[in-house]
Design a binder for these strands. Structure first.
Length: 287
DNA sequence: GTCCAGGGATTCA
DNA sequence: TGAATCCATGGA
């Protein structure tokens, strides 16, 4: 018998929900009363960390929870991932400090659009811009305590003007988002088709979009498609690698690129997330 | 390689 | 409390 429920418990160990949801991968999780609220695949969901796993609630009964298990990557065996990390001191320190940090598997369009908006913005500000965009142009949806909004589809954004988007405080990123929305809406680039490509092919396709360079392409490859070898290098990761691995002399860009492509193994992107989170939450406060 | 493009949060004085 | 700096950058 299949029973439809609006609540479930996803069993998981070594899953630090708060660290995962605040580590700069996703920008639409709101803490409320010890739980985390967001909109996934057009529906309201509320999560809570429990000792044995993650409890999830929705408003409507769910036939299955596969969409959430996929998003949270609940089946990932973290031990297997961590085993592939290099056994050097910096990496082990980051793992000890952030154990339980996970990579999500997000919806490609929202992830792509969010990271186009991320350039030279701090995480708090990215959250504000994305919130404004959803409130202006997303669809309203009921939540447990207040109204939430869906992330606007490419077809919706494609109908807007640059100044419509600038009203969401995104500045010079507005024309990039608008043009990208129009390319996706027109079908010139099929985001679903990227799943079948190699990491390099998919990266090249994404970098063809306006406002998408190597860094943003790598974020989308890693956070939406699960290309575990994609390695986004932002200012934090660059700082981490320079300090931890090249303490004497700042590496050239070429040297740094070769290092990140060879040193971190098959789950380099996962390792990168540990370094990023470690630098942001531990090192900064210690200094 | 250099310079520029929002503007809010955070840090500094 | 006012000023300076910083920010998951890309494009011209």
């Amino acid at each position: 018998m299949i029973s439809e429920m609006n609540e479930t418990l996803l069993i998981a160990r070594d899953y630090d929900l708060a660290a995962t949801l605040t580590s700069g991968q996703a920008f639409r999780w709101i803490p409320r009363d010890g739980r985390w609220e967001s909109i996934l695949h057009g529906r309201y969901v509320s999560l809570q960390q429990l000792p044995e796993g993650i409890e999830a609630r929705t408003l409507e009964p769910q036939i299955d929870w596969d969409w959430l298990r996929e998003y949270l990557q609940i089946e990932t065996d973290l031990d297997l991932v961590l085993e592939t990390f290099p056994k050097d001191a910096p990496m082990q320190t980051a793992v000890r400090a952030c154990r339980g940090l996970r990579l999500l598997r997000q919806e490609p369009w929202e992830c792509l659009a969010s990271f186009i908006l991320s350039s030279t913005k701090q995480i708090v500000q990215i959250q504000q811009i994305v919130k404004a965009l959803c409130e202006c142009y997303g669809g309203e949806i009921a939540g447990s305590a207040e109204m939430h909004c869906t992330f606007p589809l490419p077809s919706r954004l494609a109908t807007l003007s640059e100044s419509n988007l600038r009203s969401c405080k995104m500045g010079f990123r507005a024309p990039y988002l608008l043009e990208t929305a129009r390319i996706i809406d027109s079908g010139k680039l099929d985001l679903e088709a990227l799943r079948k490509l190699s990491t390099d092919e998919a990266r090249l396709a994404l970098m063809g979009l306006p406002g998408v360079g190597e860094k943003i392409a790598n974020c989308v490859l890693l956070f939406a498609y699960g290309f575990q070898d994609a390695f986004p290098v932002d200012v934090w990761v660059q700082k981490a690698i320079a300090q931890l691995y090249f303490p004497k002399r700042r590496p050239t860009r070429k040297r740094l690129k070769r290092f990140v492509e060879t040193h971190f193994g098959p789950n380099a992107g996962y390792a990168q997330q540990y370094l990023f989170h470690y630098m942001r939450t531990r090192v900064r406060n210690a200094q």
